[in-house]
Design a protein around this nucleic acid. Structure first.
Lengths: 130, 130
DNA sequence: TTCCTACATAGTAACTATTACTGTTATTTA
DNA sequence: TAAATAACAGTAATAGTTACTATGTAGGAA
């Protein structure tokens, strides 16, 4: 994986924000300073960075993907109202990994947990409205 | 929700098979006997049935969706090689629901857990090959 | 039983998120 | 510095799904 200015900026953009951006959000942010940047480049690099383990890819129920800086392992919770994505720490599955493997016959590689709910802001809105 | 022949057949098709079919798999199965069935009808009905709680919708990491009969609550494991989807029983999150809510400020509604690994068949293939 | 109306359908077009293709540009290494 | 090759921008294509429109059907009221 060879160096490129675009890749580095894309990596930094995701690392520096906390809202788990989509490819398009990264694109919108960067194209202000890099008008020739293309959306395909953003997708390609996000996936390469995820494959290389430098970023984490979070596929959501609606078919879109979010990207996150990799720090210690954690899961995500999505607001059903506004779509915000926040971090959440869950106990790991490691302790029942073996049980899962013998139940299913699968060799377990990884898992995605996406919780869904309503965030504080949206609950506040709902209360005011109703 | 009014009765329709199509809806009933779509429901039965999912209920009677164990491979967590996609909308398209249901469509392919039924159009043999119902040549005028349209894919849009399958999608619409699967989503309505899921909304009504008669089926469960399982959104996968690749952006596609699988549908499953609803029985007792369970999660799913997907084979990274062949895409097969199997059932798996996990301890529920109920016990830490409160902790999650206070950590995140979200009101928890539901969660999707999708495990990923390699199924027995694909591991057998890999062993033979390599 | 017949008529009415709302919901359902088939067929098609559109949409969203993403990936692939093509010719050009830039990084690396020799 | 020059050749090889990975990455780029721009565009076209794809997959999965949803929306639209005209026609058909379920199911209750007359």
């Amino acid at each position: 994986m060879r160096y490129s200015h675009q890749r580095e900026r894309i990596f930094r953009a995701v690392s520096e924000r906390c809202d788990h951006p989509t490819a398009n959000m990264v694109y919108e942010q960067l194209k202000v300073e890099m008008p020739r940047l293309s959306l395909g480049t953003v997708y390609r690099n996000l996936n390469q960075l995820a494959d290389a383990g430098r970023l984490k890819k979070i596929p959501l129920a609606d078919g879109s993907c979010r990207f996150d800086k990799t720090k210690e392992s954690h899961s995500h919770i999505v607001c059903d109202e506004c779509g915000a994505v926040s971090d959440v720490h869950l106990p790991s599955f490691e302790s029942f990994e073996h049980a899962i493997e013998s139940e299913t016959g699968y060799e377990l590689r990884t898992y995605d947990v996406v919780l869904r709910g309503v965030c504080k802001d949206c609950r506040a809105c709902a209360e005011q409205a109703g």
